[in-house]
Nucleic acid binder design. Structure first.
Length: 224
DNA sequence: TGCCAGGCCCTCTTTAGGGCCTT
């Protein structure tokens, strides 16, 4: 049965590597936006979309305990040394409690949104939750923005080289004609994703019931 | 330097193969 999600939480993770590296999270950012703000976006005097002003936001750096791959360190600008010198804690039951509190304070029901989330962010987050013997409770759904974009923004026949067509920066460039800010920083990528969603809000909201999955159906990336 | 994984999607498909997207 179709439901109307009242809150969309845009999510991005930075981590020590890709799935084959059995990665650990190094940075997590969640930005919660109410349906009202998505349906009634703010614009500047020129009519350009603005980021919603009324949002709840959590951004945390996490000690991954294991080494970052050189590529992940280069991309994210994070390092084990930086995280250690800044006394960052590892993913803990307390962090799970914080994330649960963040979800519970939002107007329900909630849909998490991440780019390539079905393949990467959601399974990795589920693995970290499993590591601390926990999980999110209650009805919670999730949506992969990459999957939706493949439907609502199909590749034109005139485009011959389509590698990178649905990467987060490329979609942003296509929609807004400028470079996204702070790529490969969790908060930067979340805000880029939020703007992309706002740009196609009507389409995303139309497809969300068909393409979203229950959080309970997300399979952990690997067994911790 | 490029590969490494894997679920998903597309097509020169479905008795399969290859590429994307995420760090």
């Amino acid at each position: 049965m179709a439901q109307t999600f009242q809150t969309y939480i845009f999510l991005d993770l930075e981590s020590t590597g890709l799935a084959h590296d059995c990665p650990r999270i190094t940075e997590i950012c969640l930005v919660a936006v109410h349906l009202h703000s998505l349906q009634n976006p703010e614009r500047d005097e020129a009519g350009d979309l603005l980021l919603p002003h009324v949002v709840d936001k959590v951004c945390l750096c996490v000690d991954p305990v294991i080494p970052l791959t050189s590529k992940a360190a280069h991309m994210t600008g994070l390092s084990n040394e930086k995280l250690s010198l800044n006394q960052k804690q590892s993913f803990s039951p307390e962090l799970l409690g914080l994330l649960r509190d963040f979800l519970e304070r939002q107007d329900q029901p909630i849909c998490l949104v991440a780019h390539n989330g079905f393949s990467y962010d959601f399974p990795l987050l589920k693995t970290e939750l499993q590591r601390v013997q926990g999980d999110f409770s209650g009805p919670l759904s999730c949506l992969d923005s990459c999957k939706v974009l493949r439907t609502i923004d199909p590749i034109p026949n005139s485009v011959r080289i389509w590698k990178g067509y649905y990467t987060l920066p490329e979609v942003y460039r296509r929609f807004f004609g400028k470079e996204p800010q702070r790529s490969h920083c969790a908060e930067g990528d979340v805000l880029t994703l939020l703007m992309i969603f706002l740009h196609k809000a009507q389409d995303f909201l139309r497809w969300v019931n068909i393409m979203s999955l229950s959080w309970a159906k997300i399979v952990p990336m690997y067994t911790p």
